[in-house]
């Protein structure tokens, strides 16, 4: 891995995104817009909006980064650019971290916008600081990116890649405890939820957006999310093959 190659790759990915201003606008506006929508859906039910809206601020970047990474990496694979990069003096880590830095920056921007709208304009509460929600959002975005990278290896077309979102992300969203507390689900589902990284991502956000001590649970959550990110990046690196059929 070299700093030059990683930096060049991050810069290149950002240049590509800059060429697509509509994507940037969607990235920044859509999560905030959905939060506003949620605010009016739970009209006058402040407690419910707080319970769902506040953690959601930190989950949007996860969802979006999963999607754009799986498409972006699929494009690299199908356009032949990845194969060419693999014949050049460039490490797999340079590709991974290049994307990680570029999309991490985008995720940070997205988190700033959605947290500003949520915690400032819509009056969501963040007893431990909105900045902590923002940091978790960036961490979750990197997790989403790592999972998206891994998923892209199993898609042959963009149609397939888009379907991975309902296939891999929706079940995690449903089981993570955001909509229904996990202990009131069927016991089997509760057990399964322990194996899903988003459960820990959500749990950390729930702790941060509720009053009370963060405690050891929070540390466990953060460690599990970090571990899942590293594991999927490692698995993703395995799918960046120098030699193919």
């Amino acid at each position: 891995m070299s700093i030059r190659a990683t930096g060049a790759t991050a810069r290149r990915v950002l240049l590509q995104i800059r060429r697509d201003p509509r994507t940037i606008a969607l990235l920044l506006v859509v999560p905030a817009g959905l939060l506003v929508l949620l605010y009016f859906i739970f009209d006058g039910q402040e407690a419910t909006f707080q319970k769902i809206g506040a953690p959601l601020c930190g989950l949007f970047p996860f969802i979006v980064m999963f999607l754009i990474t799986s498409i972006a990496m699929l494009r690299e694979r199908t356009s032949g650019t990845l194969e060419r990069l693999m014949t050049m003096p460039l490490g797999k880590a340079d590709v991974l971290f290049g994307y990680g830095i570029a999309f991490g920056l985008l995720a940070a921007l997205q988190a700033i916008v959605v947290c500003s709208v949520g915690f400032v304009a819509l009056g969501l509460d963040s007893p431990h600081g909105a900045w902590l929600v923002g940091l978790l959002a960036i961490g979750n975005a990197v997790l989403g990116m790592a999972l998206g990278l891994l998923a892209s290896a199993f898609a042959r077309t963009e149609f397939q890649a888009v379907q991975f979102m309902p296939a891999f992300i929706f079940p995690q969203l449903l089981l993570c405890g955001l909509f229904v507390a996990r202990d009131s689900m069927a016991p089997a589902l509760d057990t399964i939820s322990y194996a899903l990284p988003l459960t820990y991502a959500y749990d950390a956000l729930a702790l941060v957006t509720e009053p009370g001590d963060l405690g050891g649970d929070f540390a466990v959550d953060v460690l599990v999310v970090a571990g899942a990110t590293i594991a999927s990046l490692g698995l993703g690196a395995l799918t960046l093959r120098r030699r193919t059929e």
Partner: peptide
Amino acid sequence: SVYGDLSVAENLGYFGSL
């Protein structure tokens, strides 16, 4: 196998920096 959404100079700039 070049990036269609980048300019000619940006493509060569990227590969050149590698």
